[in-house]
Simulated scan of single mutants.
Amino acid sequence: MTLPKYLMKLMAGRILAALAVLVGILQILDLLDVTTEILDRKLGAAGVAYYAMLRLPRLIEQAAPLAALAGSLFTFAKLAGDSAVTAMRSTGISAYRVTMMSVPAVVVLVVVQLAIGMAIAPRTDATLSEWWQKSTPKDPAKVIDPLTFRVGDEIVVAVPRDPDGRSLEKVTIYRRDQTGRLVQKTDARAAVYENDRWRLIEPRFETLGTGSIAEGQARSMDWTENLKPGDIRTLAAGQTTVTPAEASRALAGGLSVRPRTYYDTQLQRSWAAPIASIVMLLLAAPVAMANFRGGGATLLVQCLAAGLLFMVFDGAFTALGENGAAPPILAAWAAPMMFAAFGLTMLIYQEG
């Protein structure tokens, strides 16, 4: 077996083991919260297994950066403990090359994260939301709270009428101009989704002029194509995860419930988040030069702390971007770039 294949196999095995452990822990914690409710809905063990399967992609996505950090630390610590890196350096193989030969295993994890975030998780989330709504016990006495959201320049308040999200009742639409000034209020008895667009039933209009209010009504009228039944189901379920496609649609005038900066940041994060695994590899790489007989464990702890600190900074920058306190591109990419540079600096220092 060649050295690159050996290093890649070693790295991949440890990352996979760390990922399995972390996902298992997250899965157990998640099931502790919902198992009782699933059983109360008479869904049985099959329901628990189905829920766990649909939640698995998101858990893998969440655990991937920590798995990359743990797997990289274990790999480089083994190489250092076996004096393998010392032997490789004696033959002219630098620590930079050792790190580069380990990168393909992490790149595979990055590709898996991208596939989950862009394609797999949005579908499993939608399936889970629909399944959960259908299995919710019907309670005629339960009061359904109205939903408030934006569609383009319109603010909408409505009550969902069915679990499919294809009809609304008690609809009120506030339309604004480009400056944010209210120009029209529309009240409708209901709204139904037909032929890929929404239709208002018995709408009444109040149009605000400079010094007057004009009123009107109709039996029905077309409303918007930018709102989908899945959006209504997601809002009714209280789901907080935003997919890249949903963020793009919100920025293009589709459904939104948060500021524009939130969706801008989420769109940037969909590409920046998987890069965290490569950053973790760079932060762990200096451990390959550790001397565990001469206090090398301290370097291991420092690299672990750097990885955890990266996650804290990444979360803080993301929060700043979502609230508009920092530009979205800076909020998404600042922490990965800063800590990648820090990891390379540590590696150069150790190699020097």
Rank of each mutant, 00 (worst) to 15 (best):
P4H: 04
L22F: 12
G24K: 06
L26W: 10
L31C: 09
L32F: 15
I38L: 13
D40E: 14
G47W: 12
A49I: 11
A49G: 08
M53Q: 12
P57T: 03
A64R: 08
G71Q: 01
A80H: 08
D82P: 00
Y96D: 00
V98I: 15
S102F: 02
V107W: 10
V110E: 07
V111L: 15
Q113A: 11
G117D: 04
A119C: 00
R123Q: 14
T127Q: 15
S135D: 10
S135C: 09
P137A: 05
P146K: 09
E154T: 10
V159N: 08
G165Q: 05
D177F: 04
T179F: 06
Q184I: 02
R189Q: 15
A190T: 04
D196A: 13
I201S: 09
F205A: 04
T207I: 14
T210C: 00
W223Q: 07
K228Q: 14
I232N: 10
I232D: 10
T240G: 00
V257G: 13
Y263Q: 04
Y263F: 13
S270V: 08
A276I: 03
L282E: 04
V287L: 01
A288D: 01
T298C: 02
L299W: 10
V301C: 08
L309T: 12
G315I: 13
T318A: 15
L320T: 07
I348N: 09
G352H: 13
